[in-house]
Nucleic acid binder design. Structure first.
Length: 1223
RNA sequence: GGGCGGAUAGCUCAGCGGUAGAGCGUCGCCCUUACAAGGCGAGGGUCACAGGUUCAAUCCCUGUUCCGCCCA
């Protein structure tokens, strides 16, 4: 059934998205089969915190995983993407505690463990669903029937099983060790949950009196308050300052204790501080190890809230920081504080609450990690699991090889309670207080002394004590680290420890995709647990994505106010709901971008090894892309008539060139997309599709298709419709993993029979190599080139689309001519032509705009349509570009080393390029002359006073220079034109067809000697040369004409050495100068109207002979010399300065003119050209042997601009559909 | 202290030996019946800095400076 109802004019994501997701759910498409003939593909979703809400990082996770899953599902896999949530121990408990405090003013202890846990479960029920809902909004194709929770019965069973097995294997043990403790959360933390921060602190020097001696030992410490728990001071055994002290004792200040002086080479660095270290084994990790080595007593002086214990006498009950102050004060009073120095130290803080953590001696459960880590390292070494990007492999190895035993017990309530039980009958008790009940839930005095009690680890509570037969037990009150259950996720979610078909089908999972921040927390631990319990890696590939940051690259946090809620992006949000930075951006509220746009944006920003800065502008761009897709489809549907795509292969139809071309391009895009996806190149795949749809399908194919669709040829109409539907079907399917909603919506409306009810289970397109059509692409190339050339002319001439023009297209290549002739129906509408004449190079239309491409010349007669000045400007620019590039390439070619050592094909390519550029340049110059203002030169010399040929006599009224290359050699600037001339001879010079004027002049030349030429002769000759494109020669002749005689011989060395560049300038200025000069003598200047077109203004405003630097000329003209660097720096600077105000004054000066004269640019160029400046000094000598030689004479052209020119040229000269990017 | 990334157009990012590309923004012309969330055209880059290797460096090597992250 096909619903070809016309689409709405603009794409409205919100409505479509809700509807489509419901449809998929209803059809149960997300469900994966436990057993299937299809190959399996599986991903488990990293379970988000159940009471949290998704942030943009989750959206990235979901996007990437959904792309993978949908792609694989469409590619014929039995694809499982398994959702779930994490109980997130500390985080969730804290949230609920906070809420409890806020609403009822109660602590969890007020409620008691059981009641409190009820509350947490309630909370979980209330907010847990939100995660799922958010994923639905994102379009995530998660198999909801298999949704799991880390604390559901199955997962809990898995956790118990793992715990018990590890215990039985000796890999889980309980011990009193020094662990990280958060005094605020009042729980143990693993090493990973402690964040280290560099802080400015102090180091204090404290004197400890040596017993029975006058001597004191000065210790240096950053934690003076812990001295109350010191049980030794340590010196280095080889430290001569303290020889003989080891074995003696010191009197510990502020206490009545005496502690030994020990020698320890490991703890003490004699170069650091005083060389004496206080040893506090119960409160410092290094000291703890020292304590173990020396069997020192371990004295705990801080309680679980980091307050001083009762053993600290007067300090008892004080907070640790308060105690520090007091201790310091007391030491000062006793004269034992020697000094305080500023010191940088690394402070460990709690990942959750940012409280400074405290090392604490307490009984905890640990996983013995080494036996688990070893296989996990090997698995990656052997490539059984691969990291993408690969760089993470080393990070993984480094951590795994330095891993410590994992402290898994947490003194929390919310989590998996540890399956260890203590007999209340025979377990040792806390000694001094027995008024608490036996089953007191915490490690308080009076109850079982958990530090000493013997645990019975079992899957279920034992019936009787194996020791005493007692039947009363108390379960270990601690819960497990949240990551413990997460570590089992890839198999616990599939039913383990039961042997389920799911486990068999989907383990190992195909890909683990998660943020790189949890590579240790989660990925490494899953590796260890998976290998240990399943005997195989938990996943074949680990794809680690970067962190999502805001546009400025800052981490998103509530404090900074830059958090972005993905749902706000999807659905839109009112301004008041937005975080501050977003509110600035969207004062009216955020529009609904839609899930597809968000997903596409995230996919394109996914790059390896780089943070993702979410750009709202790009987001808007991809929303526009959705709209583009929508409207392209809309266009197709509107033009279908009764058409229905049947199963007949496209090749059986009579396809047009455009049809064949787009089908070929489509196959390439398909292949590229495949390749990118296989390599996790989401960004590349997305941009391939973006480019194809927009720059090829929409910009070209649809436009070309209009001809057939609106035409009379029924067959062409039919084939075009077929190709439209076929292509859209493919494009939509290719895009589906990225943009599931819009693709489904449109796909359902295509007039064709669908193999499936939904695009999400339709096959992912495979490239059809039979449709790759080199011939079609080759045929389209000149058509596209011609259209683009014509559009350039139109654009530059500001011709409105409604103005149809006549074009003359010439090509020396017969085949090209044939093609253009054959496809004139494509050419005309797309280029806005009323008529086109295709022919071999020959007579050119007068007063025309020209475009010279590779193998192609295009002329559009513009007389009466536009100001030809603009066209001349453009041509000059083009010529300059060609010259600059050719100079660059020549510089290379003139280096013998290059020719000798570079690969021959590179050299050949460069030579061909020179050829091509020269030809192009010649044609452009030829044309420039052709549209020069009336070439009839005045008989008398120009009105400027006679000048020598080297003089800068320029008329600002001239339409500037022919060449834009740098200027005079005496200024140290490079002279590309001259250089070119010298190096190339005249290869680029002669145009193919000389007209009669040229013939005449040449005839004259032959007949007479140069000495005999009159000024008028020189003038004629100049014109002739000009028309032949021999600019330099023409220049020379014009100069002679100006001088009034032909004093200097043509071959004169003086002339020769004069920069052709400068000549070019003059030429350009002089030739047309004739025209304005007649009516515009200098005196007329003041009356020139302020607001005229840039050109006219310039012509009129400046006195004909005025040097550039004095030109008061406005923007366009004034800047031109600077821009082209025809003038020396000083001169350039002047107009540059002028240009700025001129720009401001655009009210009067024409805008267009102003824009061409950015002061910055002019100044920059001028600087670049500065003689003996950086450019020359820096680049030339070191790098370019050949250039160096010539550096004095010709500095390298400014690299950037040369490059730029080349680049532009390249795209211009050989445009292809691909090269032509959408604008 | 050790390690890993990054620095390319105004902004967000590709490219990574043969003289640089996209999107957005900018400028010009157009509301051409798919799309103004649009079309066509244009402008815009000492590819952080300094050395080195190479015929040739944005790209490879070394160092420096900034920015980010991880580990101790």
């Amino acid at each position: 059934m096909t619903d070809t109802t016309e689409l709405s004019k603009a794409y409205e994501p919100t409505e479509v998205e809700a509807r489509r997701y419901a449809f998929w759910l209803e059809k149960n498409y997300f469900h994966a089969e436990a057993t299937s003939d299809k190959p399996a593909f599986s991903i488990v979703l990293p379970p988000p915190n159940v009471t949290g809400s998704l942030h943009i990082g989750h959206a990235l996770t979901a996007t990437i995983q959904d792309i993978l899953t949908r792609w694989k599902r469409m590619s014929g896999f039995n694809a499982l993407w398994l959702p779930g949530t994490d109980h997130a121990g500390i985080a969730t408990q804290m949230v609920v505690e906070k809420e409890l405090k806020k609403t009822e003013g109660k602590s969890r202890h007020d409620l008691g463990r059981a009641k409190f846990l009820e509350r947490v479960w309630e909370w979980k029920g209330k907010y847990g669903a939100r995660i799922g809902e958010q994923h639905r909004y994102l379009g995530a194709s998660l198999d909801w029937s298999r949704e799991r929770f880390t604390m559901d019965e199955q997962s809990s069973a898995a956790v118990r099983e793992v715990f018990v097995r590890l215990y039985e294997e000796g890999l889980m043990y309980r011990a009193q060790k020094l662990i990280n403790w958060c005094p605020s959360c009042r729980t143990a933390l693993s090493d990973l949950e402690v964040e280290h921060e560099e802080k400015n602190g102090s180091i204090w020097h404290i004197r400890y009196p040596v017993k029975d001696s006058d001597r004191t030992l000065t210790v240096a410490t950053t934690r003076p308050e812990t001295m109350l728990g010191d049980t030794a001071v340590a010196i280095h055994p080889d430290d001569e300052r303290y020889t003989g002290l080891a074995g003696q004792t010191v009197k510990l200040p502020l206490t009545d204790r005496e502690i030994p002086i020990i020698a320890d080479a490991e703890l003490v660095d004699p170069k650091f501080g005083t060389g004496v270290v206080k040893v506090t084994p119960a409160h410092d990790f290094n000291d703890y190890q020292t304590g173990l080595r020396h069997k020192l007593p371990m004295m705990t002086i801080l309680d679980d809230a980091a307050r001083m214990t009762k053993d600290t006498g007067k300090y008892a009950g004080m907070d640790r920081f308060e105690a520090r102050k007091q201790v310091l004060a007391d030491l000062t009073e006793q004269g034992l504080l020697e000094k305080e120095e500023p010191h940088k130290l690394s402070v460990g803080t709690c990942q959750r609450c940012a409280t400074v953590v405290e090392p604490r001696l307490s009984p905890q459960w640990f996983v013995k990690i080494e036996p688990l880590a070893k296989p996990a390292i090997e698995a990656v070494e052997q490539g059984r699991t691969k990291f993408v990007p690969e760089a993470w492999t080393n990070t993984y190895f480094h951590w795994m090889r330095n891993i410590h035993d994992w402290c898994v017990s947490r003194q929390l309530w919310w989590g998996h309670q540890i399956p260890a039980y203590y007999c209340t009958s025979c377990s040792p008790r806390q000694g001094d207080d027995t008024d608490l009940p036996l089953d007191a839930p915490t490690v308080k005095v009076g109850g079982v002394d958990f530090a000493r009690a013997e645990p019975i680890v079992a899957r279920e509570q034992p019936k009787s004590c194996p020791k005493c037969g007692g039947a009363s037990f108390i379960q270990d009150s601690d819960v497990l680290d949240t990551w413990f259950s997460s570590a089992l996720w890839p198999f616990s979610t599939l039913g383990w420890p039961r042997e389920t078909p799911e486990l068999k089908t989907f383990y190992p999972t195909s890909v683990m995709e998660t943020g790189s921040d949890i590579i240790f927390f989660w990925v490494a631990r899953m590796m260890m647990m998976g290998l240990h319990f399943m005997g195989d890696v938990p996943f074949r590939t680990v794809y680690l994505h970067a962190m999502v940051r805001d546009e400025k690259g800052e981490k998103m946090s509530k404090v900074k106010g830059n958090v972005i809620d993905p749902l706000d992006i999807v659905l839109g949000a009112t301004a008041d709901k937005l975080a501050p930075t977003l509110k600035n951006k969207f004062p009216q509220g955020m529009p609904a971008f839609g899930a597809d746009a968000l997903r596409f944006t995230l996919a394109t920003l996914t790059q390896q090894g780089r943070d993702i800065k979410l750009s709202m502008d790009r987001l808007a761009g991809y929303k526009a892309f959705c709209n583009k897709l929508w409207n392209a489809s809309r266009f197709a549907l509107m033009n279908m008539g009764d058409f229905q795509l049947d199963s007949r292969p496209l090749s059986a139809r009579k396809l047009t060139l455009a049809d064949r071309w787009i089908l070929s391009r489509l196959q390439r895009a398909t292949a590229e997309t495949h390749k990118a996806l296989e390599e996790f190149g989401f960004a590349e795949a997305a941009s391939t599709l973006y480019q194809f749809l927009w720059a090829e399908f929409c910009d070209w194919y649809i436009e070309l298709a209009k001809g057939s669709l609106y035409g009379e040829d029924a067959e062409a109409k039919d084939s075009t419709r077929a190709v439209l539907v076929y292509s859209l079907d493919r494009i939509l399917r290719l895009l589906h993993p990225f943009m599931p909603f819009i693709t489904e919506e449109i796909w359902q409306k295509l007039p064709m029979s669908r193999p499936t009810d939904s695009i999400m289970i339709a096959p992912f397109p495979e490239p059809d190599t039979a449709m790759v059509d080199e011939a079609a692409e080759g045929e389209m190339a000149p058509v596209i080139a011609a259209i683009e050339g014509l559009r350039t002319i139109r654009g530059e001439s500001n011709l409105p689309p409604a103005t149809k023009v006549k074009a003359v297209v010439q090509s020396p290549d017969k085949r090209t001519r044939e093609l253009l002739e054959r496809w004139r129906a494509y050419l005309m509408p797309l280029a806005g032509l009323s008529e086109v004449q295709v022919g071999a190079p020959g007579a050119k239309p007068p007063q025309a705009a020209a475009f010279v491409g590779q193998n192609l010349e295009i002329y559009v007669p513009l007389a009466g349509l536009v100001d030809l000045d603009a066209e001349r400007e453009r041509l000059k620019k083009e010529i300059a570009r060609a010259e600059q590039e050719v100079a660059g390439v020549l510089r290379k070619l003139e280096n013998p080393n290059f020719v000798a050592k570079a690969p021959p094909d590179v050299v050949v390519k460069d030579r061909a390029r020179v050829e091509e550029l020269n030809e192009r340049k010649a044609k452009l110059q030829d044309h420039l002359q052709r549209i020069a203002p009336e070439p009839a030169m005045p008989e008398n010399t120009p009105s400027e006073s006679t000048t020598s040929s080297s003089q800068e006599a320029v008329s600002p009224s001239a339409p500037a220079q022919v060449k834009a290359a740098p200027t005079q050699e005496e200024k140290g600037g490079v002279d590309l034109g001259q250089e070119l001339k010298g190096e190339m001879g005249d290869t680029g010079g002669a145009p193919e067809a000389a007209d009669s004027q040229v013939e005449d002049a040449l005839a004259k030349l032959r007949e007479r000697t140069k000495e005999g030429l009159s000024a008028a002769d020189h003038q004629d000759l100049g014109v002739a040369y000009m028309s032949m494109g021999l600019v330099d020669d023409a220049m020379r002749e014009f100069n002679r004409a100006k001088e009034g005689n032909g004093a200097a011989p043509a071959t004169g060395t003086d002339e020769e050495s004069a920069p052709a560049k400068a000549q070019g300038d003059k030429l350009a200025k002089q030739v047309p100068a004739a025209k304005p000069e007649r009516p515009v003598p200098a005196k007329k200047m003041p009356s020139a109207p302020a607001k005229t077109q840039g050109d006219k203004l310039a012509k009129q405003a400046a006195p004909p002979a005025a040097p550039v630097k004095t030109a008061t000329a406005p923007a366009k003209r004034a800047a031109a010399p600077a821009k082209k660097a025809a003038a020396p720096v000083k001169k350039a600077a002047a107009p540059a300065k002028k240009a700025a105000p001129a720009k401001k004054a655009t009210a009067s000066a024409k805008k267009a003119a102003a824009k061409k004269a950015p002061a910055k640019k002019a100044a920059k160029k001028a600087a670049g050209k500065a003689p003996a400046k950086k450019a020359v000094a820096k680049k030339a000598p070191a790098k370019k042997a050949a250039a160096k030689k010539a550096a004095g004479r010709k500095a390298p052209a400014k690299k950037a601009s040369a490059k730029k020119a080349a680049a532009k040229k390249a795209t211009r000269a050989k445009p292809t559909a691909r090269a032509k990017a959408r604008r």
